[in-house]
Design a protein around this nucleic acid. Structure first.
Lengths: 199, 199
DNA sequence: TCCTGATCGAACCGGTCGGTTCTATCTAAG
DNA sequence: CTTAGATAGAACCGACCGGTTCGATCAGGA
């Protein structure tokens, strides 16, 4: 038996389920590649219910992107944590994690960056800027713990590798992109933490 | 006096002008952000003329992206050539060139990659893969001339920096992105060409 | 028991889309 | 001069869009 017409058993559960469904479809087909009618049908709710929950398609997109950014950020931070206390190991773990992601079926690049590319305006662009900032924070923290001479600069360089790897993995063949990024990241880390007397 | 109704003075000129106009609008507003009616109006041609020249909106997009890829590729290669014979100087020149590009008003990231992100299908994705391959060729050539131990690997790493810089410059504030990429690129070059005995 | 509110399903709205076709008109070649 | 081809401009097509509204239906609380 499908869903009856009356009140849902749990509004928060419904909302979360809608977000999860919409996230998958919007990621796979793009922000403009799917209409709200189809999103509602896939999520099993009516347009009126979606409208009350999210106000508009833009509101739904905003909620989806924010949830996704939160989850990705936690996922990367967790990957670093689980790699132990060595900064170099943490950095390698981050790039190994995205390597696994690249190989997953349906990989289409970073959903938040893609959204900002499609709608170069709020809310997507705002969320994307914050999303990159979160990645930068993680990488800069690793650079700091590694004792880099200029942790902020190294963090920004590592961010370039992270985002570049996602773009290249999305638009080019070849499974080695994450490994290339990891090698480059470790080389930069090594370079930035090298003692002056080693030169 | 606008354009009369009869045959154009030069079909090739007209086609090139349409491509130039369409490229600017499609880059600024996105593939789905503008209809062919507006493109025709801006280019000063009728829909029927555009249809005969390009067959469809997809055909127009393909022609625009191919022209853009050709031009960008020549522009980067020229930047490297003009920097002299030193591989390190050529590499720095490439990233300095994109730094100038980042600061131009209306910068919106790489038009080809953006298009492939919006329409994750042919022709955009095909052209994007080839576009990245062209960049890779240029960077690998520099790595080879620099005497890198593994020029192919270094080229791929440099490509990550190039594409990452474009993405970060597009979606984050701050004017130093190209400099960060250049510094990282030179560090990687240095690392890859370092003699074993220097370690 | 009887409301109140949430929900579905469907119809509807104005607008835009890519694409097609028609006619009047102009140019350039024969 | 004649004619074949290219063009502008406009109407038109079916489809889809995001968003709104309405009635029927159902659950849970008073």
């Amino acid at each position: 038996m499908p869903v009856p017409k009356g009140s849902s058993l749990d509004p928060d559960r419904t909302r979360a389920a809608v977000l999860r469904t919409a996230e998958g479809i919007l990621y796979a087909r793009g922000l403009d590649g799917v209409g709200i009618a189809e999103l509602c049908a896939e999520a099993g709710i009516s347009k009126e219910t979606l409208y009350r929950h999210f106000g508009s398609k833009d509101g739904l997109v905003r909620a989806v992107l924010e949830a996704r950014s939160d989850r990705v950020t936690r996922w990367l931070a967790r990957a670093a944590e689980d790699a132990g206390d060595e900064p170099a190991a943490q950095l390698a773990a981050v790039f190994d994690a995205i390597g696994v992601w690249f190989d997953e079926p349906g990989f289409r690049g970073c959903a938040i960056v893609n959204a900002a590319t499609q709608h170069h305006t709020a809310p997507a662009s705002t969320i994307a800027a914050r999303h990159l900032g979160r990645h930068l924070d993680l990488l800069t923290a690793i650079a700091t713990r590694a004792g880099a001479a200029n942790p902020a600069a190294l963090g920004r360089q590592l961010l370039l590798l992270l985002e570049g790897a996602i773009v290249v993995a999305d638009h080019r063949e070849g499974p080695g992109t994450a490994n290339d990024a990891r090698d480059a990241a470790l080389a930069l880390l090594h370079h930035a933490t090298r003692r002056r007397t080693d030169r």
